[in-house]
Design a protein around this nucleic acid. Sequence first.
DNA 1: TATGAATGAGTCTTCATTCAT
DNA 2: CATGAATGAAGACTCATTCAT
Lengths: 206, 206, 206, 206
Amino acid sequence: MSKQKRVSRTPGRPKLNEQEMPIQKVIIQTAAKTFMEQGYEAISLQQIAAICGVTKATIYYYYSNKAELFTAAIEFMLTIAHKATKSLMDSEGHLRDRLERVAYVKIAQPHSDLETMLKEAEKQLSEEHIQRIRSAEHMLYDLLAQHFEEAMEQGQLQSGSPMLLAHAFSSLLMMGNRDSARQLFSSHEQLAASIVDLFWQGAMKK
Amino acid sequence: MSKQKRVSRTPGRPKLNEQEMPIQKVIIQTAAKTFMEQGYEAISLQQIAAICGVTKATIYYYYSNKAELFTAAIEFMLTIAHKATKSLMDSEGHLRDRLERVAYVKIAQPHSDLETMLKEAEKQLSEEHIQRIRSAEHMLYDLLAQHFEEAMEQGQLQSGSPMLLAHAFSSLLMMGNRDSARQLFSSHEQLAASIVDLFWQGAMKK
Amino acid sequence: MSKQKRVSRTPGRPKLNEQEMPIQKVIIQTAAKTFMEQGYEAISLQQIAAICGVTKATIYYYYSNKAELFTAAIEFMLTIAHKATKSLMDSEGHLRDRLERVAYVKIAQPHSDLETMLKEAEKQLSEEHIQRIRSAEHMLYDLLAQHFEEAMEQGQLQSGSPMLLAHAFSSLLMMGNRDSARQLFSSHEQLAASIVDLFWQGAMKK
Amino acid sequence: MSKQKRVSRTPGRPKLNEQEMPIQKVIIQTAAKTFMEQGYEAISLQQIAAICGVTKATIYYYYSNKAELFTAAIEFMLTIAHKATKSLMDSEGHLRDRLERVAYVKIAQPHSDLETMLKEAEKQLSEEHIQRIRSAEHMLYDLLAQHFEEAMEQGQLQSGSPMLLAHAFSSLLMMGNRDSARQLFSSHEQLAASIVDLFWQGAMKK
DNA sequence: TATGAATGAGTCTTCATTCAT
DNA sequence: CATGAATGAAGACTCATTCAT
């Protein structure tokens, strides 16, 4: 009848059981993935709902509007990315090797440039939305910067601004988004290694 | 009555004096600027028309649809960027200094990540549109890569993939988009210098 | 998570102490007030529920749908108005003075025109709903008309249709809704007095 | 295909000729009538558009939003009412007779209480919208008040506030909206006469 | 060359309503 | 007794696009 329905569920509270993921989680994960892939305006709540197998109204039950869902989704994604990166960075081994693993993971899952996406969505987001995203983003940069700072103290890296290195490193990783850069190598590992080579030699203590 | 009219132009073909550009040029420049600032979906033809002081229909007179205007605008912008970069890169001086000038110019006019924008617009663009953009984009990378190749031959840079360096260099320049990276320095020149420092040391022949 | 919860009430049946009214009464009073202030369509059950501190579903527990709640609320309000008016009209004193008190009370609490509200809600109301409202409304007119009839019999008012006077009187009271009429006087009492003056002179036996 | 279409017109500018009313006029007249009959929220632009035989988008071409259309429509209606009333009031004859004609016309075309409608629409209207409506409304009251003032000067009516009389008179006319008042008489003329009787006797110089 | 007038499809959002618990 | 979780339908509004002039 309607184009919205995937699996047509009846209105009203669904019966319990189904140890499937709680719907709110499904929504935010789907949203995070889809927004990262297509940006803010290009994807409609209708489409996100369809992927989740719910109706638009269900999304509105959990998130008050598109901007709010977007913000929550990006926060969620950045938090996940932070956790994953932290776990890699906190593990054993030489800093350079850990960076390589981080690089590999990011290249294997390419994702849009947050700055560009924010510019696109800016008109719809409130100050508070932007703050929330920025602050989740900063945790990632801070994490990298802390490790760089330590390495500077230990004489592995040239003294300088650790935050600059964090930005430089993550900017370099955006190469993973470009097909024409990816195609220079036959595997993601090799691209990751080359990027880290360049970065490390550029930053290390001579 | 209608919100579309901006300035009531005098009837008849408008004169070209007083630096008035031909309308088509006004349109494409405005479009280029606006798309780069806000992305594809976030800006409507209505808005572009309004900025140009014409009506939507006028845009359709020159470009058959939004995707076409977008493509033409991005091509235009990339061509300009290519020309400007070429002129800087072909000038006298040490390669490193020329890179610094290129970096400075790009940082001073920050602009969105093309890859991210294309992902957003992808659904609306035809294969041909994408080809056209990619090929304009490639001219830029090729330009850089050629200079890097020469430098490798002259023993200034480590042998390797010049195209990789081109991507690395332009990825690093995306730092110029991030406020939190800009704020580490008190001037664009300093940011440009730091980026090129890192890049150069990372790429040069030891 | 949900915007619907207001106050988290303790589980189990709520105590009735501290002037807490039974929920159903809270609902209908709130509904009456809100519908009278904003009309039928302009107010959502969500909003009414929020004011009451309950959820929409609770309203549905007591009233089968919005039209039913509206009808009950208007009936409730008209019944209250009837009681209050009856009490004023049945008290001692000259009819004219009693009318003045009625006028004062109504002017002090201005309220929308029922006819206009009904026209707005009409599409949603069943025949039965409308009947119920009309009949509650009629009690008010009848009340006034009876007093007017008596006064005619006693020779205070010109003979004629008492019901016409009832309508005329209550129409005149709608002036109390208009700011520009209210502002002609510095107090509600004065406006009430002026209205009754005009009415009385217009209706009295010469 | 779509439920919107009445007569399916093709997009693009319609061919000239058709000395039918210009569409904007059709829209505002339809809107005025429909809003007066059903209020603000109860009628959708879709419905108004359908009555006019155009699409919603056409309405938006002429009016920037529903509140704006509403405001323009009410202004239009009040202006018409003002013109009609003025023409009746400025004609020859005794004031009382002219009032009767005004009363008759208004009773014959009953219409909602503006105050009630405004309360309903208030949340959607801007300050400016309300101002515009109020000021169109005032012209009507002023018109009546001027005639009453003259009559006071000529000793026909008791001295007092002419504006109060204007409000009283038009409030009395709202009886024309109530079926139960209308049914007291077998013709609109009689109702009009009775209302003016009461008003006149209530206001005249003794 | 340029535009005014119109459309159809789609977007976000809100709402009344349902029902398992 | 009361609610949390969901739905389908509809509403306001926007947009790319068309076409007669």
